[in-house]
């Protein structure tokens, strides 16, 4: 097991702990809880086997739902985001350009930023759809997606700095 792998597993476990017990208690401006556990979906190597990644995404969502006492919205959103991540990567880095092996390996700031925005917005949108689960709440879903994404983006891009070599 390489050092990267150990770091990745440690991150997985740490996020599983910190998300429900720390980040879910933030309640910025009343209700905004940044979903920092998406860091795992960002850090996981791009060139690895996708099937394992989908299972890991499912497990992460399930764990957070369990520990955070939520119904299952995290599971659906995280699982789906893990499933579509290759497409998001292609959109963010361009289909013709060389795709990096890992997020932190790449030095193109704009593409990295784009990737984060795609991933986080997609996940949050799905998450809030699952939470409200009604077309009447579309305005509320959009509002929550926007503000929560903003804080998640901020925290994830900050934390991911520490993983750079």
């Amino acid at each position: 097991m390489t050092r990267e792998n150990i770091v990745l597993w440690a991150t997985f476990l740490a996020l599983l702990f910190f998300q429900p017990f720390v980040f879910n208690q933030f309640q910025l401006f009343g209700s905004i809880n940044p979903l920092v556990y998406l860091l795992f979906l960002v850090l996981y190597p791009f060139d690895q086997e996708q099937a394992l990644f989908i299972v890991l995404g499912f497990c992460l969502g399930l764990g957070i739902d369990f520990l955070g006492q939520t119904a299952g919205a995290h599971t659906v959103a995280t699982l789906t985001t893990a499933f579509v991540r290759p497409k998001l990567i292609r959109y963010a880095y361009g289909s013709t350009a060389e795709i990096p092996a890992r997020y932190i390996d790449d030095s193109r700031t704009f593409n990295n930023f784009l990737f984060l925005v795609f991933l986080i917005t997609f996940h949050h949108f799905l998450y809030f759809i699952m939470v409200y689960f009604s077309w009447d709440a579309l305005g509320l879903i959009a509002n929550n997606t926007f503000f929560t994404s903003l804080f998640s983006l901020l925290l994830i891009s900050l934390i991911s700095r520490f993983y750079s070599k």
């Binding site: 099937a51 989908i54 299972v55 499912f58 969502g61 399930l62 739902d65 939520t70 119904a71 299952g72 919205a73 599971t75 659906v76 699982l79 789906t80 499933f83 699952m130």
Partner: peptide, 17 residues
């Protein structure tokens, strides 16, 4: 795999909420 896990997740939601 995705569809299978999604189904499980939806069953999970259905049971919880």
């Amino acid at each position: 795999l995705y569809l299978l896990l999604l189904f499980i997740a939806l069953v999970f939601i259905n049971g919880n909420s």
